[in-house]
Simulated assay, not measured.
Amino acid sequence: MIKILVALLVLAAAMWLGPMVFSQPGYVRIVLAGYTLEMTVVGLVIMLLVAALLLWLAVKIVRWLWALPSRSLGFFRWRRRQKAEQAFQEGLRAYARQQWQDAAQLLQQAMTEKKYHDEKLTLISYAAFYAGQQEQADQSVRQLPADEANSWFVKADLMIQRGQAQQASLFLQDKVEQAPKACGLGQLYLYSLQQAGQWQMLLEQIPAALKYRWFSKVQWAAQRYQIYPKAISSLVQDGSFSEQADYWQELPGKERKSVAAVIGRAWAKANQGHSDQAERLLVNTLALVDLELAWPYLRQIPLGRSVLQLRKQVQHWLHDHPSNGYLYAMLSWLAEQEGEQEQARLAWKKAVQYQPELAASLR
Score class of each variant (00 low, 15 high):
residue 111 M to Y: 06
residue 19 P to V: 05
residue 183 C to N: 15
residue 232 I to Y: 13
residue 118 D to H: 04
residue 187 Q to H: 09
residue 84 A to V: 00
residue 337 Q to Y: 05
residue 163 G to M: 05
residue 29 R to T: 15
residue 307 V to S: 02
residue 207 P to F: 13
residue 8 L to P: 00
residue 160 I to Q: 07
residue 247 Y to L: 02
residue 277 Q to Y: 10
residue 263 I to N: 00
residue 310 L to V: 00
residue 263 I to F: 10
residue 61 I to K: 10
residue 203 L to R: 01
residue 327 L to H: 02
residue 2 I to H: 13
residue 302 P to K: 00
residue 131 A to F: 02
residue 171 F to E: 01
residue 337 Q to W: 06
residue 301 I to N: 00
residue 245 A to Q: 07
residue 312 K to S: 12
residue 17 L to K: 09
residue 74 G to C: 06
residue 227 I to M: 05
residue 171 F to V: 15
residue 38 E to Y: 07
residue 37 L to W: 12
residue 72 S to V: 15
residue 121 L to M: 04
residue 258 S to G: 03
residue 239 G to S: 01
residue 192 S to F: 00
residue 187 Q to P: 13
residue 196 A to H: 09
residue 124 I to D: 04
residue 323 S to G: 08
residue 145 P to Q: 00
residue 1 M to I: 13
residue 183 C to A: 15
residue 11 L to A: 14
residue 333 W to C: 00
residue 318 L to D: 03
residue 275 S to M: 08
residue 221 A to E: 12
residue 281 L to P: 01
residue 275 S to V: 10
residue 265 R to P: 09
residue 86 Q to F: 15
residue 174 D to W: 10
residue 343 Q to S: 11
residue 238 D to E: 14
residue 177 E to H: 15
residue 33 A to V: 09
residue 80 R to W: 12
residue 24 Q to P: 13
residue 11 L to I: 07
residue 132 G to E: 06
residue 326 Y to I: 03
residue 301 I to K: 01
residue 78 W to T: 09
residue 359 A to L: 10
residue 143 Q to F: 12
residue 332 S to C: 00
residue 183 C to D: 11
residue 184 G to R: 10
